[in-house]
């Protein structure tokens, strides 16, 4: 498979503590790679080095063959890697359209002054959400009136709308109820169908097995192993997370 993202020999040292050592993996287009691991295993540190929040002590990150290491989080986003955080980074009091365009709002001129083009932004939001299989009940309503799954979909819609090639999702189902977790899983499959690569961080085993094309298990900052879901089981993954097996 061709490579969308390549992570090579990532290492991160905080003071005398080596949080991540020699992490290497790839993500292909339309592929979902799960980073699994217990708390403190280094999952968050790895994705922060990919998204530009942390600079690695050693190692490189490539997107479509271009070196990303050393770029700012903004530049990494522009290059096509969108990170969806647990807190969703949505403004609850704004409608889906404004959330989709937050920071890049569209305006039209009236009486020589720029006015927010709410209608176009709303229509675009409805459109992108539809491509994710989600019907927005009331496009003019603030997103706080939507379900957790629908809100998650807006965050994902933002990534699609701005043409991210790779989406990083940090525990996307952690704060959701069971039906909404299913919605998010369905969203991941639709994203994959669009050719978007996904790095999913999770320690929820059913989610891991439902979403992953490959599972990379981190334990104490190193890759404890890499498996395809079909060739492993819950028990082995848990053992690897605990650092028992290589």
């Amino acid at each position: 498979m061709s490579e969308l993202l390549k992570v090579e020999g990532l290492r991160k040292r905080f003071g005398g503590n080596e949080a991540v050592k020699n992490v290497t993996f790839t993500v292909g287009p339309g592929e979902c790679v799960v980073l699994a691991g217990d708390n403190g295993a280094g999952k968050s540190t790895v994705i922060k080095m990919i998204s530009g929040v942390y600079q690695p002590t050693d190692g490189q990150v490539f997107l479509n063959g271009d070196l990303l290491t050393g770029k700012t989080p903004e530049a990494v986003r522009t290059a096509g890697i969108e990170t969806i955080y647990q807190d969703l980074a949505l403004a609850d009091n704004l409608d889906p359209g404004l959330n989709l365009y937050l920071g890049r709002e569209r305006t039209i001129r009236r009486f020589g002054l720029p006015f927010l083009d709410r209608k176009t932004m709303r229509d675009d939001a409805v459109e992108v959400m539809k491509s994710l299989g989600i019907v927005v009940p009331d496009p003019a309503a603030p997103v706080r009136e939507m379900s957790g799954g629908q809100r998650q979909a807006i965050a994902i819609a933002r990534a699609i709308h701005w043409q991210a090639g790779l989406v990083i999702m940090d525990e996307p189902t952690a704060a959701l109820g069971v039906p909404e977790q299913r919605e998010v899983m369905a969203l991941i499959h639709r994203l994959k169908a669009k050719g978007v690569g996904i790095i999913l961080i999770s320690h929820n085993l059913p989610d891991i097995f439902a979403a992953a094309d490959r599972i990379i298990v981190l334990a104490r900052g190193v890759v404890a192993g890499e498996r395809r879901p079909a060739e492993t089981n819950d028990e082995e993954i848990v053992r690897m997370m605990m650092g028992a097996t290589l």
């Binding site: 403004a91 704004l94 937050l102 002054l113 006015f115 927010l116």
Partner: peptide, 28 residues
Amino acid sequence: HYVLKHTRFGAHTYALGANPASVERAGV
């Protein structure tokens, strides 16, 4: 009214009140 309701500045003002992190992450 124009500034708050119809400009990008106004939209960012509302977003700031709901979730400052969202505005920061949006590059404002």
